[in-house]
Amino acid sequence: MTAALEIDDLWVEAGDPDDPLVLVRGVSLTVAAASVVGLVGESGSGKTVTCMASLGLAGRGVRITGGSVRAQGIELVGADERTLMRVRGGVVGTVFQDPLSSLNPLQRIGDQIAEAVMLHHGGRRRSHHARVVELLAKVGVPAPEQRARAYPHELSGGLRQRVAIAMALANDPALLVADEPTTALDVTVQAQVLDVIRSATRDEARSALIVTHDLGLVAEVADRVAVMYAGQIVEEGPVASVFQDPQHPYTRGLLASRPVLAAGRRRLGAMVGRPPLPGSWPAGCAFAPRCPVATGACGEAPPIRTSDQGWSRCWHPGSGETTATSRAEEGAA
């Protein structure tokens, strides 16, 4: 079966071609049919750029300089505009972070969903009204007939994100790409939107690539997780095994800095330093300057270690008990 999305050694850069700013360094990632992959990492790690560049939506000045991206077997890197237009919305539905700004404030939401249908099925906006109401009902918008006539500002953030998801699902795409779909929402609403995404993927055997920095979201909806740092994927594997036995020290740090209710009152773990910005990524292992287990070997690019289910990019995989946690405990004492 064809994978929904196959990113193979993708390189992305921006700015002056003679002095480029490298944003993504050889990312390879596969979203298998009917599976959900979470792509996590801090701001500036290149996770959004990876998704947007794959679909040719990264904007002017952002170039793919190498690699290949196939959606349902269709090559997207170097593809002509016609192919990209057919894939966007048709094969791949996209949901953006901020549901207010991703809807046109001047258009009724029904018209915007109808537009997404119309772009792939032709006809007039009005002739797709039944489909619009069906989509709104599917993503759990109450009174869809009436709501179709509302403008974005008349809806709450949660409803707006449901509308954005309805737009993405308009043409029954095989793959849903969601860029931080819950980040801009209240916590209570996040759970509801998560349910919508879950039913759109699990219940309909649809694949999804979900970009987020919310590890809880990944644990709830994703089958596999890829951790990105400084333009590279540093660890990839099934959610259960990565969360229980993280191989890369960065993954361990991320997991340790997550609040856990059951742990009672304790200081949250925190990683030292800040994530490096594009253009100032250290040579060798980019995480080495912040890494609690770094050694001299980390000045060299780390090897890729594959386990039976995933892989990581580290000189010292799996070593050292969750150091960030222990350091945090020392701080609390």
Binding site: L55, E81, V92, F96, Q97, E115, M167
Partner: peptide, 23 residues
Amino acid sequence: RSEDYVVAAAGAGASDLYLVRRH
């Protein structure tokens, strides 16, 4: 042109000409 809703419409499969005219 760099507003999210224009990028979102492009993500839904709209052509440049359509984006200019409609958004």
